[in-house]
Write a protein that binds this DNA or RNA. Structure first.
Lengths: 128, 128
DNA sequence: ATAGGTGCAAACAGTTTGCATGTAT
DNA sequence: ATACATGCAAACTGTTTGCACCTAT
C-alpha cells in the first residue's frame, strides 16, 4: 500500500462518495466508472490491504459478503435492509453490553445489528 | 423432511448433545461418530431443511460458516471465541434496540454479538 | 531502474445440485 | 412398490493466488 495509483484513487473515491458500508461488488461497480479496466482481484487486494492497515473496517451480515466502511468514525452499529441488501449506519449504541458475557469470558468487542426494511424500500413497497 | 433415517437421527443427536450453535463441520464430525459414511451433502441438506422448517435457527459470525441452533429457546444472543472459534449462548438482551432504527426504517429483528476469549481458551492461555 | 501494483486466469473453500443407488414407508 | 433420502462427484459462488506485464517512484 505504498504507491498511489489511479485504481486506488477510484476505490477511495467510492468510499468518499457514500456514508454506508460497501461490498466488494459495490466498490467494483463504483470504481469502474472511473477505471473501466479495474478487475475484482485488485478490489479484493486493496480492500484487504486497507482493512489490514486499519483504514477500512469490515462489516458483515449473515449469508452476505463482507462490507467495508472507513475507519475512525465514532462508535456505531448497523442496519441491514432485507430487500435491497444494503447496509446502513446507525446512530446509537445501547452500551453496557460487555456485562452480558458469562463469567470467565473476556469480551473485547461487540456488534449490534438491526434487520428490516429501509426507508427507500418501505416507500417503494407502500407505493405499489 | 418426512422420513426418519439413521443419519437424521445422528444429526439431531449432535444438537441434543450440546447447548451451543454448531457449524456444518461440527455436525458432520459429531454425527459421523454414529454414522461413519455420512457425507457433507446430507448434512447441508438436512440443516437447510430443518432451518426452512423452523426447527433450526442459523447463527452467523463474520468470516465464518453459519452455525445452527435448535429453535424455541427464549430470546438470547451469542458470544464468539476468537481462539477456538466456537459459538456460545448468552443469557440476556439489552432490549429497546428497535428504537435505534432511523426514521422510516422498519426494524423487525436484531442481533447482539459479543467477541472475545471463552473461559476454556482463557484458562489455557493463562496456564502457558 | 526497480520494487510494487495490476489484470488475467487458474486455484480454492464452502456449499449446492444431478444422478444412480439405497431404504423407510 | 414407490417416493423420498443418501452419497458421490461435478457445478457453483465468492475470494485468493501465480505470473507476466505495467507504472509510480
Amino acid at each position: 500500500m505504498e504507491r498511489s495509483t489511479t485504481q486506488r484513487a477510484a476505490i477511495r473515491a467510492a468510499f468518499a462518495a457514500t456514508d454506508r458500508p460497501l461490498s466488494p461488488q459495490e466498490v467494483l461497480a463504483a470504481a469502474r466508472a472511473q477505471v473501466p479496466t479495474l478487475g475484482p482481484a485488485t478490489v479484493y487486494r486493496t480492500l484487504n490491504a486497507l482493512a489490514a492497515a486499519g483504514t477500512l473496517i469490515p462489516v458483515t451480515f449473515p449469508g452476505e459478503p463482507a462490507r467495508y466502511e472507513v475507519a475512525g468514525k465514532k462508535h456505531h452499529h448497523h442496519f441491514f435492509c432485507r430487500l435491497c441488501r444494503r447496509a446502513f449506519e446507525l446512530a446509537g449504541c445501547p452500551g453496557r453490553l460487555s456485562r452480558l458475557g458469562p463469567p470467565g469470558f473476556r469480551v473485547d468487542h461487540h456488534e449490534v445489528t438491526l434487520y428490516g426494511v429501509c426507508a427507500d424500500c418501505g416507500a417503494a413497497a407502500g407505493a405499489e
